[in-house]
Amino acid sequence: MTAAKSTKAPFFRHEFVLVAVIVLEVILFQALGRRFLDGSNVSNIFRFSVEVGLLALAMTPVILTGGIDLSVGSMMGLCAVCFGMLVKDASLSPWVAAVLSIGIGTVGGGLNAFLIARMKLPPLIVTLGTFSLFRGLAEALTKGSKSYSAFPDSFLALGNSTVAGLPAQLWIFFLVAIGIWLLVHRTTLGRSFRAIGYSPEGSRYAGIPVERNLSLAYILTGAVAGLAAVILVARLGEARANAGIGYELLAITAVVLGGTSIFGGSGTIAGTLLGFLAVAILNNGLKRMQDYEIFDKTIASVSNEMSGMLTGLLLLVALAAVPVVKAITARRAKS
């Protein structure tokens, strides 16, 4: 009985910790800067981070299966370059090119899926390989320097306009979030991701098509990386080989921060969304600090450099909070 309770309790507590972190961040940035909670800034927070959010959503099922996908950031670079070539060199409509780019992401995800599910190679090693492969392809296609720009305004609106008061791409994010939430929490496929994460052998013995379902998880991250690339190009107005560098780590940070076990099995989409919020708000707040004149120049420049460090600290503090609190209460209960 006690064991059963303790499997649930820390999970809730973890989400409480995250909400507390988010509230703290908001209070801090509101106090330090000005107009942090302004409508325009709030929508900026989302506009600038939707791509990472999409990756984090798609990464959740993969991590639930006990795997990882390090190639999503590089996949964005490849898809962005392909998108640029399809529009500029092949003169396709940006919308057709967008669909094709997502298709390229799907194929790339399929390559990961084949190597991991079929060839039974470790996900960390496979996606470390495709991490270099996809980025390398993108660089080769653009000879390292070429970039594509001057896309039609109707396409750029996807990254820069507002629809019903919210950034246009946020609506796509909502749709994907709902879709992946349904997938993870309401379908047999989602259930099987957990089962595979807890015990791949046990899942096989229960008749779950482990190979097929594992493949689907990696194909999904590839497709979503393609989508994220299209949105990024629309926001920046430029397609380059360096699109999405480091995004895979931010996405994994958000997922792990959200309480999904890196060993697979347990985790929620709600957690991932909270983890994503915590990361997005931190990065936005730190970027804005440079713009305010109340800080002298040194703090401003330092705050930008501290962004990575603070993201790391946030991850460690949030992950350590639950076990540390537990250890302290246990010690108190003893004495």
């Binding site: 309401r186 047999t188 259930r191 089962a195 807890y198 046990g202 013995y205 008749g207 779950i208």
Partner: peptide, 27 residues
């Protein structure tokens, strides 16, 4: 192989009958 220890017993019991109990994939 027999039971996934971390999962609720309800999930364990239905694991081999997903296609029958949940036609059309919705739980």
């Amino acid at each position: 192989h027999g039971v996934i220890l971390e999962m609720p017993i309800a999930h364990n019991i239905t694991m081999a009958v997903h296609p029958v109990l949940f036609p059309g994939t919705w739980l």
